[in-house]
Design a protein around this nucleic acid. Structure first.
Lengths: 158, 158
DNA sequence: ACCGTTTAGTTTCCTGAGAAACCGGTTCGC
DNA sequence: GCGAACCGGTTTCTCAGGAAACTAAACGGT
């Protein structure tokens, strides 16, 4: 009677990927919200600024959209909030009057150096019990998938 | 000068998971939207109904929220749309006046049997080039992660 | 049988993310 | 130089998703 192809949603990998990513995101965003009052978008921007910014480079919003894979609107909003909280400073860009250069303030640096270790700690908690090779292959697969999804989207997208 | 712990957002696994999941979701939702006019939520409901429903069981919305890991509001909206399109039918539940029993209509079955193979095809396209053991370990890791994230959320969440 | 509690479903409200329109400022071709 | 196309950033609008409030039906104890 069951001549249907017996499709099981629970086995569908994109579905598993989605619900897993959601579960992880929920955990992380809740932690950063409760401890630092930061949203994921804001946290991502700080992560980039804290890493690259400390190497001497000030970044534009455009740089940040590339680095975070977020919409430029999302980046703009995150920067605005962070600026209002005094965690990042914008200075006029000498070489381009349209944009500003962003960098963490002292206070921003302070929070950054507190947030990032807890991010790593959460990552460790999550991957506790995974061995090195597993994690390495997970990274590789995610990268491959991203590339594949991107190229397939481009094909049908135009 | 760089005494910062050099946190790289790009290496952060939850971040990789998130952007990969987004890329995959975007591809899939775009395909089902353009080919069948279905949203992901609607498609998930149909997938469950098509699978379980064909085995004789009619399901309530409550069953569907469990099976799809979606909010009950999302399930309700999806069901409403599907009913209006004539793809699912609601019949009163004899044993509980609050709920309805849902099942695919003939037309729903038809679409279902067309959609599901293309879902599988997309899955195959995405995982083209991955070998069996890789995929198996990916499934296992996603399941483990989900469990871990869930338990960690519960701990801090109450 | 009756009242308080729980549960399935629905409606309403709010938040987050992206699309599109918009506003200077810049760059390129003439 | 000057106008056109382009680009970074901002504002506005739309939509999906989730939280909370609400309705109606069921259950549980008395």
């Amino acid at each position: 009677m069951t001549q249907s192809t017996d499709f099981q949603l629970a086995d569908f990998l994109p579905y598993q990927l989605s619900i897993t990513s959601n579960a992880v995101s929920d955990l992380i965003s809740e932690r950063y919200r409760s401890r630092f009052g930061l949203k994921v978008t804001e946290w991502r921007v700080m992560a980039i600024l804290g890493d690259r910014g400390s190497h001497g480079g000030q970044l534009t919003q455009r740089d940040l959209t590339k680095a975070t894979v977020m919409d430029k609107v999302a980046v703009n909003r995150a920067c605005k909030v962070l600026e209002e909280r005094g965690l990042v400073a914008r200075v006029a860009n000498e070489s381009d009057g349209r944009s500003h250069l962003l960098a963490l303030t002292g206070e921003g640096e302070a929070i950054h150096s507190e947030v990032m270790p807890t991010a790593r700690a959460t990552e460790s908690e999550l991957f506790d019990g995974f061995d090195e090779t597993e994690v390495a292959s997970l990274r590789a697969m995610l990268a491959k998938l991203r590339a594949k999804a991107g190229s397939l989207t481009d094909l049908s997208g135009r």
